[in-house]
């Protein structure tokens, strides 16, 4: 007999629903995500959004903290070239994501648990598609908690 593996908090039979933190922008990507709601599109209730003014202001430590606290993936919905604050926003956001991924690897977390995409103010359909694909990919990876090196 092998010892039971106790990493799965959910009831047996329940499919694993990945928890995804979305970091979106107040002026552009958040309205796009709102539009998915107004258009009655669907995505997983495991998806939860925190809005910030600009994704160039995200600390990589927030992403790490989310993955260490129980989120299975983080999706950064950025303004891309549309950012009204910073002309080099896309570059800055990529740098932040790159730094977070490097730190994720150090912690044993799969770098694919972090995604970045430009989501515009009418990008409801691309957003739900991105999140659908991300949920599927994260479901295949399993819970992030299992990857964390102690």
């Amino acid at each position: 007999m092998t010892a039971p593996v106790a990493t799965e908090p959910q009831a047996p039979g329940d499919a694993f629903v990945p928890r995804i933190l979305v970091l979106s922008t107040n002026n552009i990507s958040d309205p796009g995500i709102d539009l998915a709601g107004s258009s009655h599109m669907h995505y997983s209730p495991g998806v939860k959004v925190i809005g910030v003014p600009c994704t160039s202001g995200i600390r990589p430590s927030w992403i790490l903290h989310a993955l260490e606290s129980g989120f299975d993936g983080v999706f950064v919905a950025s303004d891309g070239d549309e950012c009204a604050y910073l002309p080099d926003c896309a570059k800055r956001s990529s740098r932040i994501v790159g730094e977070a991924q490097a730190r994720m690897r150090e912690r044993g977390i799969d770098a694919n648990r972090l995604r970045l995409a430009a989501i515009c103010s009418v990008c409801a359909e691309p957003f739900t598609r991105h999140l659908g694909q991300f949920s599927t990919a994260l479901a295949a990876l399993g819970p992030a908690a299992a990857e964390l090196t102690p």
């Binding site: 910030v52 003014p53 160039s56 202001g57 995200i58 927030w62 910073l86 926003c89």
Partner: peptide, 26 residues
Amino acid sequence: KGCGGCVPMCPENAIDLLGYTDAQVT
């Protein structure tokens, strides 16, 4: 302008954006 672009650039984490502070987001 309140974008927060300087926040992750500080190696000492000495910058906070009011309304979106490190403590609040965490």
